[in-house]
Amino acid sequence: MAEARSSRIECLDGLRALAAIWVLVGHCLLLTGWHIPILGEPDLGVDLFIMLSGFLMVFHYQLRQDKEPWQRPETWLKFWTRRYFRIAPLFYVMLFLALALGPYLYDSRMVIDEFLLRSPQASQRYLDSGLKNIGAHLLFLFGLVPNFAYRTPLPDWSLGLEMQFYAMFPAIMLLVRRLDWIWSAILVGAIGSTIVFVVGLLSIRFPMPSFLPLKMQIFLCGMLLAGVVHQRQKRPILYLTLALLLAALPFGGKYGLGKLLVREALVLGFFALVLYRMLPGMAGAVARKIATTLANRFFHLMGELSFSIYLIHLLVLQPVAAFVITQFGHDLTAPLRFAIVVLVVLPTVCLLSWITYNLIEIPGQKMGRFVVQRFGRTPALETTPAE
């Protein structure tokens, strides 16, 4: 099929963009006191990001596997180098900016929490500039330690989670080569679930699901979809059924019937948009229209900016929301308060993201490619910013 030979799937840019905007708008709703079902749940947007990450890692692995077989240790090093330089440069800049602005951001958050009659945020999340906290974040180990997993003003808990996934990814792919996709996904999901159960017995609590076993099942959903794309004899219904079962595992965040249904819908929608050529009649036509729309120039640009949007938005949102609350208080309704904040925050964050994408992300990715080509035994394939 055409998509099996392509180095690009139409809908991915748009889905990355939608996930970033979902998280931003969800946080705007939470910090202005207005509630809209589903949209006001930014953790679901993070789940979409996680599924996309699982898909992309497998998809690009499959494109490279002939020239960079995973049986070679240098392939692992190339993979880790690419991923490090994709994530680390912008994260390090935003980390030190967030720590420098910590007291100001903490004051802003206190204004918001007091106005909305919520329990105040822990001060150490904004004010801990200690060497242990900084070191744990520079080494991307913070997600493994409950005390450091949620200890900066950034939404970076998911980056620690992502780095854990990258660390385990080569081993998972070697397992897939040995057992096939279905049995590998079942085994990895079972191991993750067992670890979560043991961690619970030990009364270890993570403030956010920053520990890989808590979200491994969501990564597996995206990985299973990518596994379908490159198979000659495709079994999408079997893979989709397993992905739906994995997404229903009751851990890795707040769970209820509503969130369960949304997560299942995300899996179904993701499969439909990527595999729309397999859908019959009107369903295939509608999915194709959505997928191609998500590939247009606007969504491509927003997809490229999605990582910057995700990292930057809280640094802008909290001061803006606090300012609006301080100036207008209860004179504004919650919907109007939300509208004003979004109208200020969204374009500001997009502009800052465009700047950081060009000044930090692109040079970082080029550096990663240079390191791979300079020290790798074989020239690395060119990667795209969407990877």
Rank of each mutant, 00 (worst) to 15 (best):
L95C: 07
V176S: 01
L314V: 13
N147T: 10
W157V: 03
G258D: 12
V345N: 01
A98G: 15
S184P: 08
T194H: 08
M223A: 14
F328H: 15
P146Y: 06
V274A: 07
A17F: 03
Q327Y: 08
W34A: 10
M94V: 14
L214T: 02
R369E: 14
L77P: 01
D331V: 09
I360G: 06
P250L: 04
M51R: 06
T383S: 11
Y104K: 07
I36K: 07
S53P: 04
V145A: 08
W354G: 04
R374W: 09
G368F: 00
F219R: 02
L174E: 05
L48E: 02
P37D: 09
L105E: 01
S7K: 10
A2G: 06
L273A: 08
L24Y: 03
A283E: 13
G102P: 03
L30S: 13
F323G: 04
L179D: 03
H27K: 12
K78A: 11
F219T: 03
A149S: 15
V58W: 00
Y357K: 05
G284E: 05
H313W: 04
L24I: 11
S203F: 11
G143C: 07
I36T: 14
Y61W: 12
D43Q: 12
D113Y: 09
V228G: 01
L245C: 13
P73N: 05
A287M: 05
S184Q: 12
A248N: 05
W354A: 15
F49D: 01
L317M: 13
E74H: 10
I9H: 01
L44I: 15
L242R: 05
C28Y: 01
R337M: 06
Y106H: 12
A20P: 05
W354T: 06
L359F: 10
G376H: 07
L311I: 06
R377C: 05
G253R: 02
L101P: 07
S158K: 02
V58H: 01
V46S: 02
G192E: 04
F328S: 15
L56C: 12
F142D: 01
E382Q: 11
L12Y: 02
S203A: 13
G281P: 05
A272G: 07
Q231V: 07
A291Q: 02
L29N: 00
I204D: 08
L343H: 06
R263S: 12
A4P: 06
R374Q: 12
M223H: 06
V341M: 08
R177L: 10
